[in-house]
Design a protein around this nucleic acid. Sequence first.
RNA 1: GAUUGCGUAGCUCAGUCGGUAGAGCAGCGGCCUUUUAAGCCGUAGGUCCUGGGUUCAAAUCCCAGCGCAAUCACCA
Length: 541
Amino acid sequence: MAEITPQDAVPLSESEIVAARRAKLKRFRDELGFEPYGQRVDGLLPLNEARTRFSEDAHLAFDAASKEAKISGGVPSDSRATIKVAGRIVQHRDMGKLVFLFLRDATGDLQVSISKSAVEASAWELAKAADYGDILVTEGPIGRTQKGEVCIWATSVSLGAKSLAAPPEKWHGLSDPELRYRKRYVDMYANPETAKVFAMRSRIVSRIRRFMDARGFLEVETPVLQPLAGGAAARPFTTHHNALGMPLFMRVAPELYLKRCMVGGLSKVYEINRNFRNEGIDRSHNPEFTAMEVYQAFGDYGTMMELTESLIHELAVSMVPERQAAGLPVEAEGPVLPWGDLAINYAKPFVRVTFEELFRRGVGVDMRDFAAVRAKAREHGLHHEAKLDDWLVVNALFEELAEALIDPARPTFVTDYPSAVSPLTRPSRSDPALCERWDIFIGGMEIGPAYTELNDPDVQLAKFTEQLKGADDEESTFRSLDEDFVEALRVGMPPAGGLGIGIDRLVMLMTGSTSIRDVILFPLLKSMGSSGAAAAEGPTA
RNA sequence: GAUUGCGUAGCUCAGUCGGUAGAGCAGCGGCCUUUUAAGCCGUAGGUCCUGGGUUCAAAUCCCAGCGCAAUCACCA
């Protein structure tokens, strides 16, 4: 195997900015003796925590002692805390024999002041020549400057990593949305609010887990690679297992496996799951997205409604201090979290309205009067109406006219959907035309449905079979009957409530993000140029 | 998939009626021990997204393509 030298890795041509940075890297290593890619450092403080170590008293005492020492020629006593930090340089001001720079980490920014007289010659050269984007490690007492800026007065400086890439604009950051998504690693340090959103997302997901765990649910993991893509009527991504010679699908939902868990005796389970749907991309859809599915034995859709309302309300309450800390608008009463043009009020109880009532208000006729429904459908230009089943026409009209009546500024449960459009749901005990299902809408987005689950294997099999008949040629290539699932139901699944919540959309609402790409670290974009096209061809060997 | 808009230096953006390609930041060389988007002097940096077309002349007008965004469609 040939030795790879750093020179081999250098591109043939690069911008003068990059060339200048490479020259500095060489100089730092060869002339100044710094390892440009750093080493282990213990005892580092996050920058926001470092800032809290500042003491005005210690600063003033040191200031006074310094002046005295200047006259008497002694060494001033210093009670300031000495701390060690690391961060990326986001500002660099060279004043001659004094360098001010700002370091940034995920917790915030902190100034470092480097005086030529306070550090070794090599460290001084490093401080002078350091670039925007370099990762720096520094140690020293924390004080402030004449202008009052809290800072570390460096006594040592070293490199954590030399940055060889041309940095974004230091004031505007990275604003081109395409570049922000393609180079998220730059976006995250150049635009601090980006990193804040992802830190918030992490805490939100963590709170969801604590909420579920506190209620006695077990978190489980079920297959992403499935021989049959069941649990939702969405187009799956297809793949293949070489050793088994077996076609596989990326899951569109974990539902059928979580129900198998119920059959097995895990009576309260949840999974925070990545799903994959081979469909369009827009502000609220990414091909892979995160959901949480929940199943509770001997619960029903009412159990799931209480759980969902409590969870979302609790999350919204927890966002009040989060958003205040991040400088985002918020009202504690409710609470009210602004989102886009809306001020969404998460006060309990959430709005509840039946599908039938909303249909009557939105469409103006009784949904069971199919003649009137079809007349309305023609009136509103649903031209393929004649080909559709009665209830599908009802559903289409509902989505067209009734959903718009839902107040986007209030979380709203729409309950008791027509049974005919909900194959995995148990029909209503009081009215067989309806089923025990609700959907929750917030901000005009569907956040998730919940069902009283169907656990009668014969009814389930009949519904699956009926659904398959309705599938067109394309659908039938990936839709097939999950016989093992029906077999599991024959073993006996307890009655249960089930729930699915879109975590990305919930995080959008909680963090004030109006695009799903702003809450997914690396959203899918088309690949660029020929290398991307070649990669899409797959392995050739 | 459709429509509209955008694509100019590493980044953020100007570019008038079609007539030699511009600024700020970043970079490079200087000066400066208290800056807050530091400042000052000097300097370098371009496949104007790609490919065609119209024209004496195209960043600019036209066509096609690529990428991104918004809206719509699709997504129970």
